[in-house]
Amino acid sequence: MKRPLQPIDSRSIPELVTTELRRSIVSGDLAPGETFSLRKIAAMLDVSFIPVREAVRNLEGEGLVITRPGRSACVAPLHLEDLQGIYRLRRNLEPDLAARSSVQITDAALDRLQAQAEDFGHERHTIQTVYDAHHAFHAALLAPAATAWDMRVLNSLWRAAERYIRIGFSKLDPDPQDKSRRQHAHEGLIDTFRRRDPEAVSEAVLVHLTRNEAAALRALADEPGATGT
């Protein structure tokens, strides 16, 4: 009898290193433009050099890292025109998906999302703790009308924007009013969805995206390593 396949870990060491480096970059712990040694990273993570090199290549493909000759790399600078391009694409996709979703999504789903929106204003949250939930919130709003390809494209755009949003909006957290504004903005989206008016929903999502882009650009205007206008 042939030997059966053996179970393997669902995530390899390079994947784990990629995840940890990505977390450090999108949170700003590794700052835009900062140079780092691959060997020092390997020592900090207690892994060999090879998975770190592979992780850096993965992150270079995501536009987060720039490799350099030798054994060093640097965190890609923030290009604000890239953020504007991401939001331009989002404005072409999300309002239309939201309009179509608004007549398909169930009341039960909206009730669940209402509870999530209320939690966004909790004092314990920063942009770092709420980002993943915020991502899931918008995905759930659009899911009834979205195809698998729609979600692939949107997830790519959301990931590309993640570093800009986390770094930019983290600057707003010292103002307690920003937490309540975050809550009320998302509760307002739910209220508009409950009206089952596709045109109103499309406009509400467009306004939501435009305001978020403007806030992120303001927050990042003086960020070291940010370029463009």
Rank of each mutant, 00 (worst) to 15 (best):
Val65Gln: 02
Val65Trp: 08
Ile66Ser: 01
Ile66Thr: 07
Thr67His: 05
Thr67Pro: 04
Thr67Glu: 13
Thr67Met: 13
Arg68Ala: 13
Pro69Leu: 10
Pro69Asp: 09
Gly70Ile: 09
Gly70Tyr: 12
Gly70Pro: 10
Gly70Ala: 11
Gly70Leu: 12
Arg71Asn: 15
Arg71Phe: 14
Ser72Gln: 12
Ser72Ile: 08
Ala73Leu: 11
Ala73Gln: 06
Cys74Gly: 01
Cys74Asn: 07
Cys74Pro: 00
Cys74Asp: 05
Cys74Phe: 03
Val75Trp: 00
Ala76Met: 10
Ala76Tyr: 06
Ala76Ser: 15
Ala76Asp: 09
Ala76Gln: 14
Pro77Glu: 03
Pro77Leu: 06
Pro77Ser: 06
Pro77Ala: 08
Pro77Val: 03
Leu78Ile: 00
Leu78Phe: 04
His79Asp: 12
His79Pro: 00
His79Phe: 05
His79Arg: 12
Leu80Glu: 00
Leu80Trp: 01
Glu81Val: 06
Glu81Pro: 00
Asp82Tyr: 03
Asp82Ala: 09
Asp82Ser: 08
Leu83Lys: 09
Leu83Val: 11
Gln84Trp: 00
Gln84Glu: 13
Gln84Met: 12
Gly85Met: 10
Gly85Trp: 04
Gly85Cys: 12
Ile86Pro: 01
Tyr87Glu: 09
Arg88Ser: 12
Leu89His: 09
Leu89Gln: 13
Leu89Tyr: 01
Leu89Ala: 13
Leu89Phe: 02
Arg90Val: 01
Arg91Phe: 04
Asn92Phe: 11
Asn92Val: 05
Asn92Ala: 15
Asn92Ser: 14
Asn92Arg: 14
Leu93Asp: 04
Leu93Thr: 01
Glu94Cys: 09
Glu94Pro: 06
Glu94Thr: 04
